[in-house]
Design a protein around this nucleic acid. Structure first.
Lengths: 253, 253
DNA sequence: CGAACGTGTTTAGCCTCGCTAAACAAGAGT
DNA sequence: ACTCTTGTTTAGCGAGGCTAAACACGTTCG
């Protein structure tokens, strides 16, 4: 998050290489060295060390991320208590609404989908499990931001800004903080085509009595179905209920 | 895999720290420094650099792996073509047998479960998605080893040995290679309580015409149910069929 | 309460070792 | 065969990682 005082520069380099590999899916030494402005030798040394540690695999002349990331990732996900208790609730939500239900947590100022369940009619979204999203333009994100200390929210906005993805995206701090007030008041957040046109989303935060926010759950669907009474009472009730059940199970386990 | 000629030692250190963090779930600077025989300062510098790159998160006085691993892991998994085409087949297998069906791939000489589907009666296994297993003592592993170049298999055994987990585990190279011959002949592998007592498993490799092995699929269950005709014909047929469908879809996509 | 330990962090400074640049090997395409 | 590619290896300078010790700050304990 904040810059290290005595950084290990080689680690920074390795991180850059891994990030580039993730974006490119697979890449060769030369390609990486050009992209990152590093010597071929340097890139080579890093890659071969990473390979020896299984973080990377060679695939002919290309390198790609090792499946070790998947191994580590599964463990990381399962280490989150909210994952274990959240999954069944998200499934139920999807069942009861026939829409797309999601579980998201915050880390380093952005959101990441931990789980997702599709009801009968659920739409297929671009964002998948494991994908990173901004917090200011999603219902889930706003639900979380609304319950973080103001100071923390400010720093997150400093870091990631408020990029807009649709006409409805809230892109001013003042407007966002007003919106967060509303969210806190009524207990749930609504994303009215703020991230993607045609999609509405109702989200509730999972909080515990100590004031900590552990994540958020949501139900999303096309504006044609998420409206009227469903939008105003039925779905909010279900979502808030799910969030409550999760937080209760979180505190007693 | 093989040792790097000009290793970046700091990367090795970082790798050790990340591995330790994975094992410990979360740990402090002092704990890690003692465990790894490093100075507190060193560990601190690495951790803070890792944190700045989101590979690690602070949680009070402890550090833990970042959810970034999950993000990277999902992408790595999805980058495997066998995952996309394998999942539906594994689901069908589980449905048709009412048992536990799995999809496994090899990397760095060990197996990793990419997907797993549970039929009605399926048992609950200890090993989860994302878990690493040895290749010599699982049906899935033997199916893969049988189709790798002998040279490659030898090096895998050099690296990981043949640790035994039950009385039935094959722990001599000669016996293993004989078994692999049998596997190649009949087209599928059987794990008869070689990894865990009480569990049998039938597995078939996913190969393509160019001779490459992409992974393996299996059905596993208690010895009480996996026997007789089911063991000898019904399940092998289903499993081999699934493997075939996958490899066909692999070549035409 | 204050002393004694526990953290994580920061600092000074030696000397390793990571980086650069260039040469090398090994194919693929012409 | 010659010429681009790759990826890899090498020599050598000097940045910077590592060690050791001191620091700040909380908790615990006498």
């Amino acid at each position: 998050m904040t810059e290290a005082r005595n950084p290990v520069k080689s680690v920074r380099t390795t991180a850059r290489i891994l990030r580039a590999l993730k974006e490119l899916d697979s890449a060769g030494v030369t390609e990486l060295s050009e992209r990152l402005g590093l010597t071929k030798g340097t890139v080579h040394n890093h890659l071969s060390t990473l390979e020896e540690n299984e973080f990377v695999v060679r695939d002919g002349e290309k390198y790609r991320l090792g499946i070790l990331f998947f191994e580590f990732g599964e463990q990381t996900k399962r280490a989150k208590k909210i994952y274990g208790v959240g999954v069944p609730e998200v499934e139920k939500l999807a069942d009861r609404t026939d829409e797309l239900a999601s579980l998201l947590i915050e880390e380093h100022g952005r959101g990441i989908y931990l789980h997702r369940a599709r009801g009968e009619q659920a739409l297929t979204l671009d964002t998948r499990i494991g994908a990173r999203v901004y917090l200011h333009n999603t219902g889930l994100g706003k639900a979380i931001l609304a319950h973080l200390p103001r100071e923390r929210t400010e720093r997150i906005l400093d870091r990631h800004g408020l990029p807009r993805t649709t006409e409805n995206t809230i892109d001013s701090r003042d407007a966002l903080f007003e919106e967060l007030d509303r969210v806190r008041e009524r207990g749930y957040a609504i994303d009215d085509e703020e991230r993607a046109t045609g999609i509405r989303c109702v989200a509730a935060p999972v909080t515990t009595s100590d004031g900590a926010v552990h994540g958020a759950v949501s139900v999303a669907g096309p504006t044609s179905r998420i409206k009227g009474d469903r939008l105003e009472t039925a779905i909010p009730d279900l979502v808030q209920n799910a969030a409550n059940v999760i937080s209760i199970n979180l505190t007693y386990s």
